Amino acid sequence: MQRALRPKRFHQLWPFYLLAAPGILYFLTFHYIPMTGLILAFKEYSPFKGMMDSPWVGLDNFRQFFGTSDFYMLLKYAADQSAESDHLFSLYHLPVAASE
């Protein structure tokens, strides 16, 4: 069984901890903390109650969204935007790649 990190050992390794700190902060800030916002998709959010005190509705928000007549229009719009983005990306990068 391994012992806890001793203060003497920490002082020897502090440059490595300093090097690791930006990566850890980046991961926490942009990948771990935003995951808490995913809860909002399953709640009837009220800014006055906050994220944790708003009532839980489960999949009702998704059922309501998928049941609207606008869903298919929005799905088509998103697919068109994605295809257009891919098309513009390839139109720009293919000549650049071919010239090299």
Rank of each mutant, 00 (worst) to 15 (best):
M1D: 03
M1I: 06
Q2V: 08
R3I: 04
A4C: 08
L5Y: 11
R6M: 05
P7S: 02
P7W: 10
P7F: 02
K8H: 01
R9N: 11
F10C: 00
F10Y: 14
F10Q: 04
Q12S: 10
Q12D: 11
L13K: 04
Y17L: 15
L18D: 02
L18H: 02
L19Q: 05
L19P: 00
L19S: 04
A20D: 11
A20S: 12
A20H: 03
A21W: 03
G23M: 09
G23S: 11
I24D: 04
I24Y: 11
Y26F: 09
F27G: 06
F27H: 14
T29V: 01
F30M: 02
H31P: 00
H31G: 00
P34Q: 09
P34E: 14
M35S: 10
M35A: 14
T36S: 06
G37C: 05
L40M: 11
A41L: 13
A41K: 00
A41Q: 10
F42E: 02
K43D: 01
K43E: 05
E44Y: 03
Y45L: 08
S46Q: 09
S46R: 13
S46T: 06
S46P: 00
K49H: 06
K49R: 13
G50E: 09
G50M: 07
M52G: 09
D53N: 14
P55N: 04
V57N: 03
V57Y: 02
G58R: 13
G58N: 15
G58I: 14
D60V: 04
R63T: 10
F65Y: 15
F65M: 15
F65H: 09
F66A: 07
D70H: 03
D70Q: 12
F71M: 06
Y72C: 01
Y72L: 14
M73W: 06
M73C: 00
L74G: 07
K76Q: 12
D80T: 14
D80I: 14
S85C: 15
S85P: 00
H87E: 07
L88D: 13
L88S: 09
F89I: 01
S90G: 02
S90I: 13
L91M: 11
L91G: 05
L91V: 07
H93C: 07
H93W: 15
H93V: 11
L94H: 11
L94E: 15
L94S: 14
L94A: 11
V96Y: 03
S99D: 05
E100I: 14
E100Q: 10
